[in-house]
């Protein structure tokens, strides 16, 4: 639960630590904290949802399907992340920093800055957890995808499919016209990955089979 607030704090600290920045650069760092750090924190939390539940056997014998319980837990994580991100965005809008980044896309649609990558990366973490049943392995997958998009941003955006799946299109996008399609694609990808995870969790006995090996 500490992840999203710490991610926001990291963005603010980075903006304050930058020497002699222009307002545009500082605004980019602040929005970058929302678009880069907040989704990573939420995704790592979602990656750890599956695999280390101490009450797993009890959950599997309960009337409520375990995948519904896991989905509820993921909803709590995302709701908390959204609360922190919305509060931060509101502060940035009220203080004028939101407008100082030219590609801010407004106060309302601009919320997709953090919402789309958060849902996509969290869906990836949840699906990786369902496939690998190991928080460490799922966390490594999430951080790798995030890092690849950071360090190979130009290569990823060199073609249309890559641009549509690029997580940081608001602060590092090379084709601003693709922004809306990019955000919608990320939202759809996130929903598809969550659906995939729920399908995989339809056989919850897989979650305990490895412990018996």
């Amino acid at each position: 639960m500490l992840g999203p607030p710490l991610a926001v704090a990291l963005g603010v600290a980075a903006a304050l630590a930058f020497p002699e920045p222009s307002d545009t650069t500082r605004a980019r760092i602040l929005l970058g904290g929302l678009e880069m750090a907040v989704p990573l924190a939420a995704a790592v939390a979602c990656a750890t949802l599956i695999g280390q539940d101490p009450a797993r056997e009890v959950q599997l014998s309960a009337f409520t399907p375990y995948r519904i319980t896991l989905l509820r837990r993921m909803t709590v994580v995302l709701a908390w992340t959204a609360s922190v991100a919305l509060l931060t965005a509101a502060v940035l809008i009220l203080t004028g920093w939101w407008e100082r980044w030219p590609q801010n896309h407004g106060a309302l649609a601009g919320q997709l800055t953090w919402l789309a990558p958060t849902l996509a990366l969290s869906g990836l973490g949840f699906a990786a957890g369902a496939v690998l049943r190991s928080p460490a392995a799922a966390g490594a997958i999430v951080t790798t995808v995030w890092a690849v998009q950071q360090f190979f941003g130009d290569a990823v955006q060199a073609h249309q499919p890559g641009r549509l799946l690029y997580l940081f299109a608001t602060t590092r996008g090379v084709v601003p016209g693709d922004w809306t399609a990019n955000r919608l694609t990320l939202l759809g990808t996130g929903a598809a990955l969550i659906a995939l995870a729920l399908v995989l969790l339809g056989r919850p006995e897989r979650l305990i089979s490895e412990e018996d090996e």
Binding site: A7, L10, A17, A45
Partner: peptide
């Protein structure tokens, strides 16, 4: 895991992607 990823992200963002100087 969360702490390790957080510290690692600080290195990526503050030492490279977002802030390079200072």
């Amino acid at each position: 895991l969360g702490a390790a990823v957080g510290l690692w992200a600080v290195r990526v963002l503050v030492g490279g992607v977002l802030v390079r100087d200072g």
